[in-house]
Design a protein around this nucleic acid. Structure first.
Ligand code: FES
Ligand code: FES
Lengths: 159, 159
DNA sequence: TCATATAGTACCGTTTTAGTACTATATATT
DNA sequence: AATATATAGTACTAAAACGGTACTATATGA
């Protein structure tokens, strides 16, 4: 299904809550989990990762909690995905040293996989996190997307 | 990792072998599995699915085997993925009746997920199967991809 | 000193995936 | 008609990934 993991989905859900609050808003993982009716350990685990990557910032101890990081605007949807579940890689062999398939060196599909992966990854990296609270003006028609890629992929040299 | 399943990967690998052969070429799953040094049941299972979806055509019985379907050119990379592993859906709630997340009706992330999914799905649907044997003229620079999506997603109305 | 928060680690049950085995059906050859 | 060989379809099993839980350590305000 090329499906995101559940915790990645939840990360978007949680982050949106922070994005919707006024700047400087801070809350604890516990209260957040209670108000959203979600298991605390799950919420906590995700917020910890976001904090580690500077999307959120944390204050420990009593009266502590999480708030939006100062530089959160630098990150994209694609980056958030990679923070939670690792590199966006269509196959195990993509963007890594591991071998998949039959043999990376002789696998004729490999270079095409790499590019397919870029198609997806670049698109997700192009989406700023602000997209989670900003409604796009409009979404491109399927035909527009097709036309965009067509100029690059169609009618190349047989390989 | 947003990773394709191994059998999908293998489907591309196998299909490429057919695409590289001259038109009308036909071979059995058994001989193909032997020449590629892959387990026969796995190869067989995948070819069956491709046949069912008219990407390949089959002849049963002795001297039978698989060959490229007459209408294989109609299909895209995205369609092939969906044949093997079902709908391209970033979350369980995307493009289905199932509920994921907290509640689809009240989940503020949901409409954004739907669009993210289209970003990926449309891109893969725009790639013709011929791409597996045709080398693209060139690949768009990351900046070009970003610019394409930026005109749609950037600076929308806060929602 | 204590209460309460984040930070980090380790574990286990469930689900999905990958691979295997087996049976049924179709067709060319003998 | 019998047989060999191919696809078609189903059922099962072992392994890996995922989701969730529990527990411990550390930091800080009251
Ligand atoms: S080795 Fe990478 S796709 Fe085959
Ligand atoms: S219900 Fe679809 S993303 Fe939350």
């Amino acid at each position: 299904m090329i499906q995101l993991r559940k915790d990645t989905d939840l990360a978007f859900f949680l982050l949106r809550h922070f994005l919707k609050q006024p700047k400087g808003f801070q809350t604890s993982a516990k209260s957040l989990s209670e108000s959203l009716n979600l298991p605390y350990p799950t919420v906590s685990k995700i917020l910890k990762v976001l904090n580690k990557n500077s999307v959120l910032e944390s204050v420990q101890g009593s009266k502590g909690g999480y708030g939006l990081g100062a530089v959160y605007e630098e990150f994209s949807v694609g980056q958030l995905i990679e923070m939670i579940e690792g590199p966006i890689a269509l196959t195990a062999c993509t963007s890594s040293t591991e071998q998949n398939c039959v043999s990376q060196a002789f696998c004729g599909v490999h270079p095409h996989m790499e590019l397919m992966n870029r198609v997806i990854r670049d698109a997700l990296m192009a989406l700023p996190l602000s997209y989670l609270v900003n409604k796009p003006q409009r979404y491109p028609k399927k035909q527009e997307v097709t036309a965009f890629w067509k100029q690059y992929f169609d009618e190349g040299n047989r390989v």
